[in-house]
Design a protein around this nucleic acid. Structure first.
Length: 797
DNA sequence: GCTCAGGGCATTTTT
DNA sequence: TGCCCTGAGC
């Protein structure tokens, strides 16, 4: 037997070897799904399939890259280079460019990301003189997106009685009109949004049987990872491509479907068997990742869902610790608890930072946790939130690239036409837009024509500025044909004036922006080198842009330093597919659960359960769930309830100690052995959820000398934004100065204050010093509370 | 055309 | 609290 087959268990091997038709692999969490997919492809290659005849679709570019590497390890690198492997979006972008003429697009069309399309929708709503409170751009955007994911074009939308009825009911009858205009504008601008890529692929295949036949012929085998997260548009593409040869191999876990907001439809998976009569079903039920207790806890949760494929995931690993749930008094205490437990576990079990992950529902939740990590000198990295490519300075540069390659790209042109400032303001842009609308041409067509042609009423000076802008873009276009991607990028950054503008700005943010642009240049350079290694000769800016347009934060290899020892902070969504020794699931309150307005609250509830299931099953050894009873959100303190999942879980598997009531209690039970006064003086920094990874932010470093261990020094690199909450900052500062009288910038005994959690109250005593000052406060509607000023948010009134 | 102050408002996950 | 938009004033 070939050696890679020995590395598989019976059911895995069966799935890899079966080659007589459509297969559906239902793979439980941690059951070796990626391994099966990898070996399946390796097996196909060994059995005579040409690499270019294999199409493998994944959910992130990162997943594709990793799988390629794993296949290369089993076969050889040369072969993997020719595999068609990538996300749905990137693969079909490639195909659409190639077949552009069939769908009436130029082959160098560009891509609008979500913010571009939202801006366009905003503009259209304004142009139609609609109330943007009634027609909220985000809502309209998601209506259009959902339509596209269900393959409903704008004409079909207008004809669809149900949608029209819904829009009338929602008092937004003009959504279909916005959709039509949006579509028209995208076409004129020669751009597609993410959803359009999939929609157009379907149109291409539907209307051009010869083109479809060509790809059916080419792709002898189609494999799809994470099938539970495909939407209808994606499902249909796969179906069409496999119509003839029926060599389709999909892998997924219905219990881990967490992308319904993107149109993912669990039915694709549940009904796969109905679509393919002779489909063979494989179940991978043995979990190799987690302890029995973790698997059992996860099972007890997911079996409560109605929509699922029956399977029993089990673990033969050790029993392990139980999953535990802890409630804390506030979000600050939650951070404190997590950081304490990390330090305790590291001390007792010799774990390192990278053995821990902290998972939360929303990116914004990272801030409080970052602060806690920072205070305890725990090294961490935050994934997600604002992507590198979403940063203003990067978007600006990319907009230049996009405009050079496709000047019809209106959002890009609008972005750069007056950046750096060149005296072409909103008034002029409005005039250009009006001219373009009445002539039904793109914005660029108007800019590039003599002003008489579209009766553009601008003065001589403005006309000159517009001409200069046009000449500059045309100059870039000429040069981009002659020079390499790196050279032209550098030229654009200089000649456009971006370089000069950034150099002038000497603020901390300005420096960081400059560094980011430099980082982008490095990325281009690296991209070119990789492509050259792979044998491409002329790597153009277009090639780079193609890659980057569909790049997200999840795809970045932030830790270029593989050995970096850091605690991971990320959303549950981004944690899919990953595993960690110890996982904290924080902020498990149910106030994020969609309210009763939700049209389909049962389905939503089941999805939340799956999300929680994904979170628990990331853990190999320990899983600790926390929630805060009081949380500060949108400037208000709110009292929360634990999520229904926690209440719901069979008590057999989850301890519910409720062991942390008030700050005093946890301080009693956990000593702060690593507290460093010098460090605490420095706590006037908040982690900001806006920065990330190893790109330059407002960074600073600090040194820690570990007591007891002699000379060991540790340097911490942090990239955080300054604290923005003035009250909090003042309190910290004063507390750290150790003021004896406890007058902390206005808060002293006898002060009336508003405490956000309990309403109005009066300070009746202050005890302790420095950071640990404890205030006794008498509230109107509750009894006395003792609050540690470090964690309290107080406002003087 | 640009800047800044102040009002209004608030849903999350990602290709 | 903090973002985003608007409108006043230069």
């Amino acid at each position: 037997m070939i050696d890679y087959l020995c590395q598989l268990n019976d059911s895995q091997r069966e799935a890899v070897l079966y080659n007589d038709g459509p297969s559906l692999v239902v793979a439980g969490a941690g059951s070796g799904k990626t391994r099966v997919l990898t070996y399946k492809i390796a097996h196909l290659l060994q059995n005579g399939y040409q690499p270019h005849a294999i199409l493998a679709l994944t959910f992130t570019n990162k997943a594709a890259r990793e799988m390629k590497q794993r296949i290369a390890a089993v076969t050889n690198e040369y072969v993997t280079r020719y595999l068609w492997m990538g996300t749905f979006h990137s693969i079909f972008y490639r195909i659409l460019r190639r077949e552009a003429t069939h769908i009436g697009y130029p082959s160098d069309f560009t891509i609008y990301d979500s913010s571009d399309s939202k801006n366009l929708i905003k503009t259209i709503i304004k142009e139609m003189q609609l109330d943007d409170k009634q027609y909220r751009p985000g809502m309209v955007q998601s209506r259009i997106s959902n339509a596209k994911n269900s393959l409903i074009t704008c004409s079909a939308y207008e004809r669809n009685k149900e949608l029209v009825k819904y829009d009338n009911y929602a008092k937004t009858p003009l959504v279909s009109e916005i959709y039509r205009r949006y579509q028209n504008r995208c076409q004129k601008a020669e751009v597609m949004d993410f959803d359009e890529l999939l929609l157009q692929t379907n149109i291409l295949f539907r209307d051009n049987p010869d083109v479809l036949a060509k790809y059916q012929e080419q792709f002898q085998y189609v494999l799809v990872d994470e099938y539970q997260d495909t939407n209808f548009a994606q499902h249909l593409i796969v179906t069409r491509l496999c119509e003839k040869h029926q060599h389709v191999f999909v892998v997924g876990d219905d219990a881990q479907s967490i992308y319904s907001f993107r149109g993912a439809n669990i039915d694709n998976m549940l009904r796969f068997k109905d679509n393919y009569e002779d489909c063979k079903l494989f179940k991978l039920e043995r979990n190799y990742r987690s302890t029995q207790n973790i698997v059992d806890a996860a099972n007890s949760l997911i079996t409560k869902n109605k929509e699922r494929i029956d399977k029993t995931v089990y673990s033969e690993n050790e029993k392990g610790s139980r999953v535990t749930v802890h409630s804390t008094y506030s979000d600050y205490e939650e951070g404190y608890l997590v950081s304490s437990v990390i330090l305790d576990m590291m001390r007792d079990n010799r774990y390192s930072y990278s053995d821990f992950a902290i998972l939360y529902r929303t990116n914004a939740q990272s801030r409080v946790l970052e602060e806690a990590m920072h205070k305890r000198m725990i090294k961490y990295k935050v994934y997600g939130s604002q992507s590198f490519y979403q940063r203003k300075e990067i978007k600006d540069v990319i907009a230049y690239f996009r405009a050079v390659i496709n000047p019809s790209d209106e959002e890009s042109v609008k972005r750069i036409i007056n950046y750096p400032v060149r005296g072409i303001g909103n008034t002029t842009i409005d005039k250009l837009r009006q001219a373009a609308t009445s002539a039904n041409v793109s914005l660029w067509t108007v800019i590039a024509s003599p002003s008489e042609e579209y009766a553009l009423a601008v003065n001589k000076g403005t006309a000159g500025k517009l001409r200069d802008f046009r000449l500059m873009i045309e100059d870039f276009q000429d040069n981009s044909k002659k020079t390499s991607a790196v050279d032209i990028a550098e030229y654009i950054i200089k000649r456009s004036g971006i370089a000069a503008t950034l150099t002038q700005d000497t603020s901390i943010e300005g420096i960081s922006r400059r560094e980011n642009v430099q980082e982008l240049m490095n990325a281009i350079n690296e991209f070119v080198l990789i492509k050259q290694e792979e044998g491409s000769e002329n790597v153009s800016l277009t090639d780079f842009l193609m890659e980057v347009s569909l790049m997200t934060d999840q795809d970045q290899d932030w830790d270029k330093d593989e050995n970096a020892d850091l605690v991971t902070l990320m959303t549950v969504h981004s944690a899919k597919g990953l595993e960690f020794n110890n996982v904290f699931i924080v902020g498990m309150e149910n106030d994020l659960f969609p309210s009763q307005h939700s049209m389909d609250s049962l389905r939503a509830m089941e999805e939340e359960r799956r999300l929680f299931y994904v979170a628990i099953t990331r853990a190999k050894r320990n899983c600790i769930i926390t929630y805060a009873k009081n949380r500060y959100r949108n400037g208000q303190s709110i009292t929360t309830q634990p999520s229904f999942f926690i209440k719901d879980i069979d008590g057999k598997y989850l301890d519910f100690p409720d062991n942390i009531e008030l700050p005093g209690k946890i301080f009693g039970s956990r000593s702060m052995s690593v507290q460093n006064p010098a460090w605490d003086a420095d706590t006037s920094f908040y982690g900001s959820s806006k920065r990330r990874g190893n790109f330059a932010g407002n960074s600073y470093s600090t040194e820690r000398r570990q007591s007891g261990t002699g000379q060991q020094h540790e340097t911490h690199q942090h990239t955080v934004a300054p604290l923005k909450n003035p009250n909090y900052k003042r309190l910290e500062k004063a507390a750290d100065a150790g003021e004896k009288k406890h007058t902390i910038e206005g808060i002293s005994v006898g002060n009336k204050i508003v405490h956000n959690l309990f309403g109005e109250g009066e300070v009746i005593a202050l005890e302790g010093t420095g950071n640990n000052t404890l205030a006794t406060i008498k509230f109107k509607n509750t009894s006395e509370k003792k609050l540690l000023l470090k964690y309290a948010r107080l406002k003087v009134i």
